[in-house]
């Protein structure tokens, strides 16, 4: 196990990965935002960007990118913000608005609840 941990360690620190930034305010990304890459990785790109672009050929949640890169979500968000700024990926928020409009009304749900209690 310890050998495995030693093997997995890398010499680069997180602040060098993000260039010293620890937060990004520009874009609202949450854990389940789906990311899709819009272009192929270009030579000379940061390796994390390359990996994100490869990984996101199909939509992947931010949290999964974080797990795959073994990096904190906030660092991944900074990396994604860079890619979003250059238009290399796009973010799709989970469809909460559309789903909200088609939800059954409160009255109906209450009726269901009462019915369940009666069972």
């Amino acid at each position: 196990m310890s050998r495995r941990l030693l093997d997995d360690e890398d010499p680069d620190r997180l602040y060098t990965v993000t260039g010293g930034r620890s937060r990004t305010d520009a874009i609202a990304l949450d854990l389940v935002t789906l990311i899709v890459s819009e272009s192929e990785p270009a030579p000379g790109m940061q390796s994390e960007h390359v990996r994100i672009l490869r990984m996101c050929r199909r939509p992947v949640a931010v949290v999964e990118i974080s797990a795959e890169l073994a990096m904190p979500v906030s660092v991944v968000k900074i990396l994604l913000a860079d890619l979003l700024d250059t238009g290399r990926v796009s973010a799709r928020h989970p469809v909460s608005g559309a789903a909200g409009s088609s939800l059954p009304s409160g009255d109906f749900l209450r009726k269901v609840l009462v019915g369940l209690h009666n069972l």
Binding site: L14, G20, S22, R23, A70, P72, S74, V75
Partner: peptide
């Protein structure tokens, strides 16, 4: 710690 930290703590830890 950085892996477990919140976004606010991350800067300080860095």
């Amino acid at each position: 710690m950085e892996n477990r930290s919140s976004e606010d703590m991350l800067g300080d830890l860095m």
